[in-house]
Amino acid sequence: MKSLFLGQPHRVEKVYPEWIKKTLEIEAGLEGPCITWPCSADDAERLKSADFIFSTWGMPSLSREEIDEFLPNVKAVFYAAGTVQAFARPFLEKGVRVFSAWAANGVPVAEFTLAHILLAGKNAYAAKRMYTRHNRFKEGSELVQRTGGIFRNKVGIIGAGMIGSMVIEKLKDFEIDVYVSDPFLPDEKAKSMGVTKVSLEEIFKTCRVISNHLANNDQTKGILNYSLFSTMLQDAVFINTGRGAQVVEPDLCNILKGRTDITAVLDVTYPEPLPDGHPFFTLPNVILTPHIAGSMGREVERMSQYMLEEYRRYIKGDTARYDVTLDMLKTMA
């Protein structure tokens, strides 16, 4: 049995702590330094005898032909990060199993989103603008009175995949009416989750706080546009921790310029980073962060720990928890 790291060495070092690497050496036959791509002739020989690949952000995208040539014996890829859309399909089509730590990476995203939903429910962003930009204390407080706070307010979740479902689960600790737009969510499952399933249009028309968790694919690119943003409620807040390309950003900019009551909380944009002079930098009703919702700092170690545990289940023949399938690629972020 032989395992190798494949990807970008500095990221592998960041995500896989020493104790995980030592454990993989003992239990999975992990050998040598991380292999980069394109690889050297010596590394190509190492890859040909590999049974398992461990990786994280920076995993190269290989074609089916490259997998045949360089990884003829590989049985599984353990990816200590979130989305596998960039590389998984050729492996899956070849019958190689792919495991992803999307659930581990989803934990801090769900926590980050929950924090913003609760702040948005208090209309904290608009109240801050009123107070700090105009020194209008009373009016800032009245903005919260106007929206009613988070209690029994409506929150709309766009996409009930792994992260969207995590957010929904966390919202159960609060008395909030949760609405979900997701064509892949069965009615029975929506009922068991305690949410109301509605159309995307209904989410924007009726929910005070809207959070995007759509899958990242061609079908969702540019799906959030002017026709939706223009229907947002007074003092509504749009949160995006999904992907920037799902938003028609010029449409959102135009709405934000004309509707100073609404707020956009954007942890993702397209492109990243934004070019100098982009309106998002100066619009007062934009909260802009540099894609920090996912695993950072010590949080990244959770992802490699999940993959170590998944490897152990694989070896024992136990049921996998984080197996990726071709069908899942249709709805995964």
Rank of each mutant, 00 (worst) to 15 (best):
M1D: 10
K2Q: 14
P9H: 09
K14W: 14
E18D: 15
I20S: 11
L24V: 04
I26F: 09
E31C: 12
P38D: 15
P38N: 15
E45A: 14
R46P: 04
S49M: 06
I53H: 00
T56R: 01
M59W: 00
S63D: 03
E66K: 09
V74N: 00
V84A: 13
F87V: 13
A88Y: 14
V96M: 03
R97E: 15
A115I: 08
H116R: 12
H116N: 13
Y125V: 00
Y125F: 11
M130S: 13
H134R: 10
G140K: 00
E142S: 12
L143C: 02
Q145Y: 05
R152Q: 05
I158Q: 02
A160E: 14
S165T: 14
E169W: 08
K172E: 13
F174D: 06
F184Y: 15
L185Y: 07
P186A: 03
P186V: 09
S192D: 08
S199G: 14
T220G: 02
I223P: 06
S227H: 13
M232D: 05
A236V: 06
I239C: 03
T241A: 15
R243I: 01
P250G: 04
G258A: 14
I262V: 15
T263N: 05
V265K: 04
T282E: 07
L288Q: 04
I292Q: 10
Q305E: 13
R321P: 02
R321H: 05
D323F: 15
M328L: 15
L329A: 12
